[in-house]
Amino acid sequence: MSERSRAVAGQIGLLLFLATELMFFAGLLSAYWVLRNKMGLWPPPGQPRLPAGITGLNTTLFLLSGLTIYGAERAVKRGCHLCLMGWLGLTLLLGLFFLGLQGYEWLRLISFGLTTTHNIYGGLFYIVIGSHALHVVAALAVLLVVALQAVRGRYTVGHSGGLTLCRMYWTFVVLIWPLLYGVLYF
């Protein structure tokens, strides 16, 4: 197989995987809607409100990281190694910041008494947002591998298949987030 057709095969395979991921989140969200409509009062009395404001800021920054990784891919096409490293580094920082702030919010929510035991409101929050957080962790791991490859100068014009796959996965993880944010935090 030529490198080009290998790259195409990789992209097709990843797209199929992302379609499955989309169905996974669709399943979670449909479960969320069913249970929320069943409960009537939402959030249930005595439960903490979710931090929509600060997470909104976090969402904006996370969406930006969807653009910065695109910048990294363009930098390879222009052949600018320094720009590539810059854009990748920025994406990593934004991703880490998103994860850090989310983790901090989780700790605060737990201290406010948002637990899972016999608590569907809390359980749904942790399972939906937690599933996404696991995806962010996976995406960050992939991004780290790609960044290490980039440091070694593995990506040149026409030879950036790995970077493109990473960009596709990262974009998916970024774009699914506003949907989850919109449904769960309001």
Partner: peptide
């Protein structure tokens, strides 16, 4: 298979959460 399995994995996660963390979904 690929388009149908996602929701079941979601359901299986929730079932496991019910068993392990008593979420009660």
């Amino acid at each position: 298979f690929m388009f149908s399995v996602g929701p079941l994995i979601a359901g299986a996660f929730m079932l496991l959460a019910d068993r392990l963390f008593q979420t009660g979904f």
